[in-house]
Write a protein that binds this DNA or RNA. Structure first.
Lengths: 241, 241
DNA sequence: ATTTGTGAAACCGTTCACAGCA
DNA sequence: TGCTGTGAACGGTTTCACAAAT
């Protein structure tokens, strides 16, 4: 599924027991984990690689290679034990660790993240929120009082940047000074950090542009049907459906 | 940045004049475009591959390969014309097209997207917003009145899904029925669509998990310093800094 | 019979090294 | 001289095909 890797990470990292997990593998593990947790909730005891494959859009061979990288987990002839798989993938992803997360920038996006039941899971502990605007400082969001960005940032493992691009580098510097070892940056700009700090970028505009580019090229394959779909050359704002 | 790619797309697509642009290349073009637009605004006429490289964190060779895929754009000895580059990358990304975007789900995230000055750029026309909740239906957000998801979805090129996972497949079906050719899905679930419809996934939780996994492995390399960083084994909610 | 785990091959993208051109 | 464009080498991931295990 995913291709992008706008990511400053080593090309591969050591797995739990010295085995090596490649970046593409690590990016797929959370997807596997989602379907495995679904099976676990339903009380299903085993799952095979081709089931995981069809449910995630990955090939069965790739699933087996990925899982083999974490040890001898499967049983030939029957498949993988759901509980064991969940444990092992969880270990690789750090689900068995507690780590602290601070979020800087309590606009719509910051609030969306903090309020989302999907974001802070698997050991992530939200420990502080920051914003520059007096209109939100002091308000309670997601069980935390929003602090002023002028206060020193509390020590944490992970920092999330949801401020405008112009402020992102300064916030990154503050996070690094606070000892953060990983930054998830939603601001549309590159931030510079010392080695030893991992930065991962999520940029909505870029995701949309990638999507549109794929759409246009796939429509080109289908023939010259752009006009009939309401996709028009730029100019005086034409009617778009 | 994007590392990585949860993406249902052909492995490579035909470029503007029959040349082929790989998925990694397409993912990098918006990043190049961002620095090129900066140069354009400053009135700088030419830029060379190594400048683009240092400003984007990509190697100069990769920049040249990517750009060469769109034609003979550079001038040996001097570099690339900023205006030409902007035009050509814009064409590859569809910046010269107008396409319509509908957003389904006007919670925090949907509002964050619609209100962001960074999201809807380069030809994207927001044409309708939908939600299921009576508390937002009828309200104006980003210049649009929020419609009920029970109304038929208006024809559009791109659909953005920002609803809870449980509703995502149903919304995807509605979008497909409305003729949408590309879906940007923020819901943490896989959606099934007919061939010819492109789906691109953005999943905050997965991005965080990937980041944390990289962080943990990079810390493992650095030695057993997890404890001192406040990253602890799971158990009774211990104090995290 | 069924499904894993894995050598070997195929594939893809990046980097090297340099030829080609202004 | 300086920088692009690209053949060739390289490194890494995916896929194939099958042996191994239950």
């Amino acid at each position: 599924m995913r291709v992008n890797r706008r990511d400053k990470s080593p090309a591969s990292v050591k797995g739990i027991r010295g085995r090596s997990l490649s970046n593409p593998t690590i990016a797929r593990l959370p997807i596997y984990q989602r379907v495995i947790e679904g099976y676990s909730r339903q009380g299903i005891a085993t799952i095979d690689s081709s089931t995981i494959a069809t449910l995630t859009g990955v090939t069965a061979t790739t699933v087996r290679r990925d899982l083999a990288g974490m040890g001898q987990l499967g049983v030939r002839g029957s498949g993988y034990d759901v509980a064991l798989l969940r444990t092992k993938i969880g270990e690789a992803l750090g689900h068995d660790r507690n780590y602290s997360v601070v979020v800087v920038g309590m606009g719509n996006l910051g609030q969306a993240l903090v309020n989302s039941s999907n974001f802070l899971i698997h050991g992530a502990q939200l420990t502080a929120l920051y914003d520059a605007s007096p209109s939100v400082i002091g308000k309670e969001i997601g069980g935390q009082i929003v602090r002023s960005i002028d206060e020193p940032i509390l020590a944490a493992s992970v920092g999330v940047i949801t401020v405008p691009a112009a402020a992102a580098q300064e916030v990154a510097d503050q996070l690094v000074a606070a000892g953060v070892k990983a930054i998830l940056n939603f601001a549309p700009t590159v931030v510079n950090v010392p080695i030893g700090v991992v930065v991962h970028y999520v940029d909505f505009s870029i995701e949309l542009q990638i999507l549109v580019s794929h759409m246009l090229h796939s429509l080109n394959f289908a023939g010259g049907v752009l006009q009939s779909l309401g996709i028009t050359a730029s100019g005086p704002s034409s009617n778009v459906p």
